[in-house]
Computed example of a mutant assay.
Amino acid sequence: MKIAHVVNRLDGNGVTKAVINLCETLSDRGITSDIIVLEKTEYPLRIDIQLHSLGSSGLMKRQNPIVKYVRKLAKYTVGSLAYYSLKAEKKSAQLDRLIKKEGYTHILLHCHYSKILFSKVKEAKCFPVIHNKKSKHLKATWWLPSWINRHVMSKALVDRSTIAVSKAVRNDLSKYLHVEKQQLSVLPNVINSAAITSLAKLDRPLPAKLIEKQYLLAVGRLAPQKRFDRLLKAYSMSTCELPLVIAGDGIQLKLLQRLARRLRINHRVIFLGHVENPYQLMKHARLLILSSDYEGLPTVLIEALLLHTPVLATVCSGAREAVANCKLAKLVPIRKLSVLAESINQYSLHPPTCDECNCMLDHYKPERIIKEFLNLVDYESNH
């Protein structure tokens, strides 16, 4: 068995971490597991994991201004997935050549549009892996591109064994894209508890102005889905005097910095940018906060609970599943800022303590997930 994972790029986001964890866990069990990127990427990987690139060259490079314009035009008129469906024949043939050269037997399609680009692959069994709610992810600015996106994705998943990272994602696929339930398997992301605990213990000083257990923390891409604007507004409404640390980078950085100034909390909000090892910050935070509109499986909550850091999260898809009634976690309604603000006050003053989350974390142990994954692969190979 030789497996390859297709991602857009490796940039340290949640999908990147999930794919690398899965690759390393499979490699530790003697199963070759490599990564294929669609954009050329330099990223430190273990020596036993190969990195291949299927990026376009010449005039078709993503950085080409004409290609950028065509993609943008398609996005707002007929939907971005319609553009990628036109390239499916060529990109599938390109992946087929790499499969034959490297001898891959199974391909896991992780990134959003890889399900479309490689819908015509013939040389290996392909498993689409869905990391987010498609009912939210496929929405466009008006009904026509939204409908076309939905139709193209639904067609790409027909008769393909599909992996969802949570029950919430599985239910969304069944309801929104009408994927048959017998096609869907739930396999959560691998949580490497030993590595997380080890990284959290590294003896490095905290960033300037931060004192152990004297700050609130939010970690994630600064993207609309994550709703850091909601967090800033709730934080400004609270009476909490602890600083709020935001670890992450993204397209909304400047917008959020302006919002913090407008709310007059910029002196209490620290934007750290991308942090290579956020686990030390997590371990020493008073509270970790997630304010997303939707998630597939918010692994940041699981990682914080693993380090016995209390979490406060909106009841977005996947959050209830991630925390599984752990006493260190509190979930609040998505659209009630006042409740989030009051919870920030309460949890920052009196954070809960509990050592009973280990049974919940058993669900994400590598041994269990790899066993289920291999059972799925064996079943599909024999049918």
Rank of each mutant, 00 (worst) to 15 (best):
L157E: 07
A74D: 01
P243I: 01
K209Q: 10
V275D: 00
T41V: 06
G103F: 07
V377M: 10
H110F: 02
P128F: 07
I302V: 15
Q225W: 00
C111N: 13
C359P: 03
F373R: 11
P128V: 08
D355P: 03
H383K: 14
I211T: 13
K133R: 11
K122N: 10
I270A: 00
V300G: 05
S193V: 08
L231D: 03
L312D: 02
G250V: 06
S57W: 02
L222S: 05
E180S: 13
G58L: 06
H52L: 09
H112R: 13
F373W: 14
I163A: 06
C316M: 05
T77H: 05
W143K: 12
K330T: 15
P351C: 08
L376V: 09
A208I: 11
P65K: 05
T141A: 12
L38S: 05
T239R: 12
R150W: 10
P278S: 04
A285N: 01
L117N: 07
T41I: 07
M60T: 11
I369V: 09
P243L: 01
A74Y: 13
I116P: 05
R97N: 12
R204T: 15
N149L: 09
A218F: 03
T239M: 06
H110Y: 02
F228V: 00
H112M: 09
L22F: 05
K365Q: 14
G318M: 00
T41R: 04
S154M: 13
M1Y: 10
Y235W: 04
C326S: 15
L349F: 04
Y83A: 03
V269F: 00
I265E: 00
V15Q: 10
H5F: 04
R150T: 15
K115S: 12
A74G: 02
R268S: 11
I211V: 15
A74Q: 00
S80Y: 11
L54C: 09
E380I: 13
L38N: 09
D34T: 07
P351K: 06
E295A: 07
L349W: 00
G14Y: 10
A319K: 02
E276T: 14
A208R: 06
I31F: 05
K90V: 13
V190P: 02
I31D: 07
L290Q: 10
K201E: 15
H106A: 09
L307F: 04
R221Q: 13
T41E: 03
I20Q: 05
K167Q: 15
E123Y: 02
A234P: 09
K101N: 12
L232W: 06
R204L: 14
V323G: 02
S174H: 14
D293N: 10
V339G: 01
A341D: 04
K327G: 12
H131N: 08
S198A: 14
T141Q: 11
Q257F: 01
V269N: 01
S236E: 01
D378N: 15
A74M: 11
S166K: 04
G296P: 12
L244N: 02
Y176R: 01
Y379L: 13
L22R: 11
Q214N: 13
G14T: 11
T197D: 08
V339M: 10
K90F: 11
P205C: 02
L38G: 09
K213Q: 14
Q257M: 12
C357W: 03
A156G: 05
L98R: 03
A208W: 02
M282H: 04
E303V: 07
L202A: 12
V339T: 14
